[in-house]
Amino acid sequence: MSLKTPYKLCDYKVAYGFIFEEELKGYDYWGFCDTDVLLGDIYQFLEEHSFFENDYSRYGLLGHLQIFKNSQEVNHIFMSGQGLNYRLDFHNIFTSEQNFIFDEADGIQKIFEKIISNNCKISFLMILILVISPLENMVKMNLNAIIFGQRKMVWNQ
């Protein structure tokens, strides 16, 4: 295991279901988010978009917010990248000092797409995210493809 910088922790986030297996017993889902993410009633939001009744395996495409079903299959999926390519093999990722952004779209998302898309429900929920940057003195709108839910556009005013 390599952990020279705090940012390297991002590569390990997708393994939290495996690492904290004992602590997660009794929970249906687990997840992570960045420290600069503000959440409202996330349970209500997911409920409104049928996340729980559709029994999805994962919500989230990017590393700033992801929720995973607490199951053996999902909690071990990060190990399924062996043989796909160097950037998806957890042995390479966890032993290198380099950050692979394994929690992002080019990491765990690629594994979900290639390994279990036939076994798990995977569809897309489109969410409009408003990014406010005081440093740039501007407001940007970012259309984010988020995994799970049918292809829907959610627009809350």
Rank of each mutant, 00 (worst) to 15 (best):
E22M: 08
P6K: 12
V131P: 00
H91A: 09
G40P: 03
Q44P: 02
E47K: 15
S96E: 10
L125P: 04
L46A: 11
L39G: 11
L61I: 05
Y56N: 03
Y56I: 03
Y29F: 10
I132M: 04
N118C: 08
L24W: 13
E22F: 08
Q82K: 09
K13A: 14
Q98A: 08
V74H: 09
G26F: 07
V74P: 03
N54E: 15
I42H: 04
S71A: 11
L143E: 01
E97F: 08
Y27P: 01
W155I: 02
S80N: 07
F102C: 05
I101M: 12
H91Y: 07
I122R: 09
N156W: 03
I19Q: 10
I19E: 11
L9C: 10
E47S: 12
F90P: 05
H91M: 05
G107W: 02
Y59E: 05
I101L: 13
H64V: 06
E22N: 14
F112R: 02
F94T: 07
M153W: 03
N54Q: 15
K110H: 02
P6Y: 12
T5F: 14
S96A: 14
D55L: 11
K121I: 06
D11W: 06
V139S: 10
Y29K: 03
F78P: 03
D41M: 01
V131T: 00
L62T: 14
L84M: 15
I127L: 09
Q109D: 14
E21T: 11
E47L: 09
D34R: 08
Y86A: 07
R151V: 03
F52I: 04
S57A: 15
I129C: 12
E47F: 05
D106N: 08
I147V: 15
R151N: 11
E21M: 12
R58H: 05
R151A: 07
K121D: 04
G63Q: 07
G83D: 00
T35Q: 08
E97Y: 10
N99A: 12
I108W: 01
S71W: 10
Y16R: 03
S123I: 02
I93T: 05
D41S: 04
D89W: 14
Y27F: 15
G107I: 02
F78R: 04
N137Q: 15
F102T: 05
K69N: 12
N85H: 07
L38E: 09
F20R: 13
I147T: 10
M141W: 11
L9Y: 06
L65I: 15
G26T: 05
E104V: 00
N137P: 01
L88N: 07
K114P: 01
V154N: 01
R87G: 08
E21D: 15
I108G: 01
M1W: 13
L3F: 13
E97T: 15
L88P: 05
G26S: 04
I111L: 00
M153C: 11
E23W: 03
R58Q: 05
S133I: 02
W30R: 06
G83F: 00
L125T: 14
D11G: 06
K110L: 07
L38K: 14
S2E: 13
K110P: 00
Y27R: 02
I19L: 15
N85D: 15
I146Q: 12
D11Y: 05
W30P: 06
H49I: 03
V139K: 14
